[in-house]
Structure formats: C-alpha cells, structure tokens
Amino acid sequence: MIGSHRLIMVLTIALCLYVFTASYLLTGLIRRYALKKRLIDIPNLRSSHDVPTPRGGGFAVVIVFLSTIIGLTVIYELEVDPHSIAVLILSSALIAGIGFWDDHQPLAAKWRFLVHFIAATGALFLLPELPGIQLFSWVLDSSIILFFFYSLMLVWLLNLYNFMDGIDGLAGVEAMTTAGAAVLLLGLQGQMYWALISLLLAACVGGFLVWNWPPAKIFMGDACSGFLGFILGLMALMTSISGGLNMWCWWILMSVFIVDATTTLCRRIMRGEIWYQAHRSHAYQILSRRLNSHKKVTQSVLAINVFWLLPWAYVSVVYEAWAPLICIVAMAPLCVAVLKLGAGTTND
C-alpha cells in the first residue's frame, strides 16, 4: 500500500514536471512565432508597459493543459464523470479559440461576448446539475435563477481575467495561487482527481510564468487570459457539484481579481464611461504606477492569496453554513484597498 502511494506520488511529480517543461518550451516557440508574425503589443497611453513585447504566449498553457487532460481521460479509467470533462474541454477550447482569433485579428466586442455567452450557457446546459448556493441556513436551488447567475458569473470571470491581465506576471500568479490553493483544499476533501486537475493547471501556468515574470519577455494574450477565468469558473462549478469545495470558497480564492475588476467596472459605468474600452484605472494599475514596479504588485498579490485568502477559504469549507459571512470578511479589506487607491476613477 505504501509502495503504491509512493508510485502515485512519483508519477504525479513526473507528470507535473512534464507539463511545466512542455509549457515552458512551447511558450518559447510561440514567442519566436509572435516575433516573426509581428504580434507585438506596442505601448500607448493606456498601457502599463514601456517596451514593445510579443503577445499570445499563454496559448501554450491552453494547448498543454487540454491535451494532458484528454490524454489522462483516454488512457486511464479516472474516477470522474467523463461527461463533465468533455464539457470542460469543449467549452474552454471555444473560449481559447475566440481569444486566439482576437489576438491575431481584433474582433468587435459584441461578437466576443456572443461567443462567451454561447460557451457559458452551453456548458451549463450540459452539466448534470447546477450546484446550489448556501446562504447560512437557506440554500438557493432555483434552477432558473442559478442558470442565469452562473451564466453571468462565467462570462464575467473570463472577462475580468482579461481586464486584470495588464502587468507582468499578475494573471499567471493569480492562476497559480488559485489552482495551487485548490489542490490543498481538494486534497483535504479527498477529491484527488480534481486536485490533480488543479495541480496540472498550476504547473502549466508555471511554465509560462517563467517567460512572463517581470520584466516579461512575452504577454499572455486573450487566448489564455479568458481561458483561465473560464476554466477556474467551470472547476468551481464542478467541484461544487462533486461536494469538494463550495462556491464561496472559490470566490474567496479569486477575491483579488473579483474585487478589483468589479469595483472598477461599477465605478466606470457610474461615470458614464464605455466600460469595455481599454483603460488604466484598475487598482493594480494605479498601484504599479505609484510603486513604479510590476514585480512589487505581483508579489503583493501572491502574498495576499497565500497568507490571507487561502486560510479564509479553508475556514469557508469547514464552516460552510457561515461561508457567506466568511467571504465578506475576506473581501472587505480588499474592497477598502481598491477604493482608497481610486479604482475606476482615474487613468493618471
């Protein structure tokens, strides 16, 4: 028994090293391709970078992650509903595909959002059920309300991830720490397959992050940023269905991005601005200018996720009935911080 556990651990480590290395090498190849095809982000007044930089490197994460999941599902008899895996792969591939297209030939926002809603609603239709949301002693379980809410949630998560991918390393660190935290929490719940999926996602992002760490040699691109937000949203739904982690736990883990992007969006709409236009008024952008450093902001988010949000996420799993209040407690300091920084009110 001990020997089999050791073998599983060795195989898991080997698999993680493989996806990390594959993602790293493929990102390097994509960088050469982007330079050759002149897929370059040129700095402008709304940019947070000063040097022309190739984009689209995050597509390596998409390719390596999805191909690995397909391989594991086909080769091994895994204790998971293959239907759910098919939904995850097909819908997230659609999101990555439209992002890849947009990286090469910018699309009108209405067409992007149309595809986003098709992918989100399609995935929800195909899921075996929609997880209810615990609200203290009451559970929201209306299928109509849940379908509408989760559709908006998935579309918002993939777009906010795109909005928050504005400085070196930030989106990669957010994905790695969120997925890494999920590995620990899912493992404690005995959800080993979903823990493995989260671990592989973190390893794939890690391979890309070597190139994207400040100062970035290549940017993530829409193909990956939207994919990461969407895949994390789907994993939240699926692990909630399986009884692994509740939705509040996932929202706590993603709080930095959720709070900054949502606050900025609401304040820009209140100011009468076109919310989907590029800007520099997110809290993380303002802070990176004040500190004159992408690295310090990215490291700060890393610390917040590990030392503040992860413990609260664990508490929300242990005391699920109190998860809404725990989520408010976890998010409250972040809300105060982004408001004090002036998120959504300035482009200076």
Rank of each mutant, 00 (worst) to 15 (best):
M1E: 13
S4Y: 14
L7G: 12
L7D: 14
T12Q: 14
L15G: 10
C16K: 01
C16N: 13
F20R: 08
F20L: 13
S23H: 07
T27S: 10
G28F: 12
Y33F: 15
R38F: 07
L39H: 01
P43W: 04
S47Q: 00
V51W: 01
A60F: 09
V62E: 04
F65T: 02
I70Y: 14
T73W: 12
I75N: 13
E79C: 10
P82A: 08
V87Q: 11
I89P: 06
L90Y: 09
G97P: 13
Q105C: 15
P106T: 03
A109V: 15
F113P: 03
L114P: 05
F117S: 00
I118S: 04
L124K: 02
E129D: 11
G132L: 10
S137F: 14
V139A: 10
L140A: 08
F147A: 05
Y150A: 01
Y150M: 02
W156V: 12
L157R: 01
L158E: 10
L160C: 07
E174F: 11
A175C: 13
M176S: 05
G180Y: 11
L185G: 05
L186W: 06
L188Y: 09
M192S: 14
W194M: 12
L199K: 00
W211M: 08
M220R: 03
C224Q: 06
G226Q: 09
F227E: 01
G229D: 05
F230M: 09
F230V: 08
I231E: 00
A236W: 00
L237I: 10
T239G: 14
S240L: 10
S242I: 06
S242E: 09
L245V: 00
N246C: 05
M247S: 06
W248N: 02
C249A: 15
W250N: 05
I252M: 04
I252Y: 02
F257T: 06
R267V: 12
I274A: 10
R280C: 07
Q285W: 01
I286G: 00
L287A: 06
R289D: 04
L291F: 09
N292L: 12
S293E: 03
S293C: 04
A303E: 06
I304D: 02
N305F: 03
L309V: 09
W312T: 05
Y319L: 14
P324K: 09
I328T: 13
A330T: 08
M331S: 12
P333Y: 13
C335D: 10
V338L: 14
L339H: 15
K340Q: 15
G344A: 11
G344S: 09
